[in-house]
Simulated scan of single mutants.
Amino acid sequence: MLMLRTLPAAVLALLLIPWQLEAATPRANPQENPWVIILGSKPRPAEAQALLESMTEKKPLQWLKPAAEGFPKLVESASLPGLAPGLHVLVLGVCGTRETALAARARVLPMVQDAYVKQLTGPAPLACPTPIPLKARLPKGAVQLASVPFKQDKALVLSIYKVNERSVMECKTNDLLIRLEYGREVLTQESIEGDCRGVCTSGAKQEGEARLAEIRARIEKEEGSESELDYNFVDCLSFTPKFLGVLGGYERPLFFVSTEHLAHHDVVKSYVHAVGALCGKISVSPYNDEPGPYSHPVEYFEHAEARRSTPEDADDNTFDIGVREQGPAADKSATPLWKKVATLDDGGCGLDLSVEER
């Protein structure tokens, strides 16, 4: 796995020199000036170094291979024709065409949202990163449930599919497949699997029915309790992930999905998860088992919207997740009221979703 390297301050001055590569480096087509891929820029060297170091954790090189050792590298903006002087620029590479530059930028956008491409006004040595595609085919019968583009590049999308529908006795289940796609290429994917659990064989059902008959006989004799019937003795239960909706008003595509787990007395409980592309992978927020054996209000997440609750420059990124609802006694023409249903903590490389109690 390629990682950004933290550069000592003593080495930084060596990088902030006019753009130079070996003479043998190929150049762009003379009919088109090359395109530079920029991850960020700062006016002072120390700020540029801090920017480079801050990107290490984000793993921006997860889905591409730099053209040469040392990339991404810090250079003076004046060394590249067409860039405004006086800046220290973090360059991912230089490509011969806009299409190849955009394809490289798309592979870092989920981690570096401010990355952009710019055409130079003169020639420059080429150093275009090479994409690392994931060889993955959609399972037969896959059904796309949603696909949301990144606002910086509409060809880069987060998609979710229902796949592998299957049955075990009376239980029907399926998996969810979340993929980060650029055109026809897959950058990464993650599966949330469904399951059939409980009494899922004919032999186990016969044993369960005998157990139920024994409990009912004891209850009739007032030697047993009705609570003993709460447990599953005869059902093959479906624990199936479900797509709930897309988070609106957020800075990047984010899905809500629910999963089901067995709580006390065999009560099936639903949990809500936030799903997005962070730090080179598909991230799924963990479920919180604190509230008790009652279902979370999963119906709220079909049209949920995000509102930032921390300043833009804060160390943590926290958002209120809510829906707009008509008040119980309000006129239907009145503006719907905002109702908070969850809190989302975006740690940069992980998501945490806390659902409000009913």
Rank of each mutant, 00 (worst) to 15 (best):
I192M: 03
G194S: 01
D195E: 13
D195F: 09
C196L: 08
R197E: 12
R197D: 10
R197I: 04
G198W: 00
V199E: 01
V199L: 00
C200S: 01
A204Y: 04
K205V: 11
K205M: 14
K205E: 12
E207K: 11
G208H: 01
E209S: 12
A210H: 11
R211V: 08
L212W: 02
E214S: 14
I215Q: 03
A217V: 07
A217I: 06
R218E: 09
I219R: 03
E220Q: 08
E222A: 11
E222D: 13
E222S: 13
E223C: 03
G224K: 03
S225H: 10
S225G: 06
E226W: 13
D230Q: 09
Y231S: 15
N232H: 08
N232A: 10
F233N: 00
C236N: 08
F239T: 00
K242N: 15
F243E: 06
F243W: 11
G245W: 02
V246Y: 08
V246S: 09
L247M: 07
L247P: 00
G249K: 01
G249S: 05
E251V: 15
R252Y: 15
P253L: 03
P253N: 12
F255K: 05
F256S: 02
V257Y: 02
V257S: 04
T259R: 00
H261I: 10
A263R: 06
H265Q: 15
D266E: 12
V267Q: 13
V268S: 06
Y271E: 05
V272G: 02
V272L: 10
H273K: 09
A274V: 04
V275T: 03
C279T: 07
K281G: 14
I282S: 06
S283R: 03
P286F: 04
P286V: 08
P291Y: 03
P291H: 01
G292V: 09
P293H: 06
Y294H: 14
P297Q: 08
P297N: 10
E299R: 13
E299C: 09
E299S: 14
Y300R: 14
Y300A: 13
Y300Q: 13
Y300E: 14
H303E: 15
